[in-house]
């Protein structure tokens, strides 16, 4: 039972039938999704096949520098994606998101790899790269939510923030309520998922392991580690990015920047 059932080329080709179902719905109801569906399916096949080959190589090489290079690349892509998902934020440097993601995922990833899972060597790509993938995927969503909320809160609370400034508040003091809301926005989805995991949702990683033939009790242990490490990484990532960002809302003289103010006479 501890064996992965193989999926042959023909069996994989059958999975395309599932796309036909989606495609039929999309075209019958004229959802305008057909092109995206076809393109998305092709990309799924191509991207994942390439990743499969790449991972095979990376796992064979077992080289620390290669692992660092791959995780840096993943973090950069995640940072670019995160700053694009923030409709309330005018052009934001991906570098800051990159630094926040890097610091949080490297810290949490190292703890998990060195102290909890402890593979030999500790940077074993078979362990470290999937861990980084999960950390980055979730942190990316978290920091995007936090960053977006920081700007929308600052805009909505501009009168309060300015009132605090007139009481002699520093930008840091004046932005406290918005910071807190931004952190809550980034961290809430992850914390909520801790509540329902196993009841409402079976996480993808655990499902994957079980499908792959692992003992469910071991899969559950891994999943617990994964959930907790994701929560920590999201919290640190949001905290860092919000900390890097709040000064961007203020001028050098510590006043709110004009783009956050509603039009007035």
């Amino acid at each position: 039972m501890n064996e992965t059932l193989p999926i042959s080329d023909i069996q994989l080709a059958f999975s395309v039938l599932l796309v036909l179902i989606t495609g039929t719905i999309a075209s019958l109801l004229r959802l305008g999704l057909l092109k995206s569906l076809v393109w998305g399916t092709i990309r799924t096949f191509v991207q994942l096949t390439l990743v499969g080959y790449a991972l095979t190589y990376i796992f064979q090489w077992n080289n620390l520098w290669l692992v660092i290079g791959v995780t840096l690349f993943m973090a950069w892509v995640a940072a670019r994606t995160a700053v694009k998902r923030t409709p309330n934020v005018p052009k934001y440097p991906a570098l800051l998101a990159f630094l926040a993601l890097l610091a949080s995922t490297y810290l949490v990833g190292s703890i998990v790899s060195i102290m909890i899972i402890a593979p030999i060597p500790w940077y074993a790509p078979r362990i470290v790269i999937p861990i980084f993938g999960m950390l980055l995927g979730n942190s990316m969503t978290g920091i995007a939510l936090s960053l977006d909320r920081l700007y929308s809160e600052a805009r909505a609370r501009a009168p309060e923030i300015e009132a605090l400034l007139t009481f002699g508040a520093t930008p840091w003091e004046a932005i406290q309520d918005s910071l807190r809301e931004a952190l809550r926005a980034g961290m809430t989805p992850t914390i909520n998922s801790l509540m329902v995991v196993g009841i409402v949702s079976l996480p993808g990683m655990m499902t994957g392991q079980i499908l792959g033939g692992a003992d469910p009790r071991l899969a559950v242990r891994y999943q617990i580690v994964v959930m907790l490490m994701i929560t920590a990484a999201v919290a640190i990532g949001c905290l860092l990015l919000v900390g890097f960002s709040y000064k961007k809302l203020f001028t050098e003289d510590g006043a709110l920047k004009p783009f956050l103010l509603q039009s007035r006479n």
Partner: peptide, 13 residues
């Protein structure tokens, strides 16, 4: 400093 100034010269919106 701006924070002191804004207390001394206080704006009431």
């Amino acid at each position: 400093p701006a924070s002191h100034w804004r207390v001394l010269v206080h704006y009431l919106a």
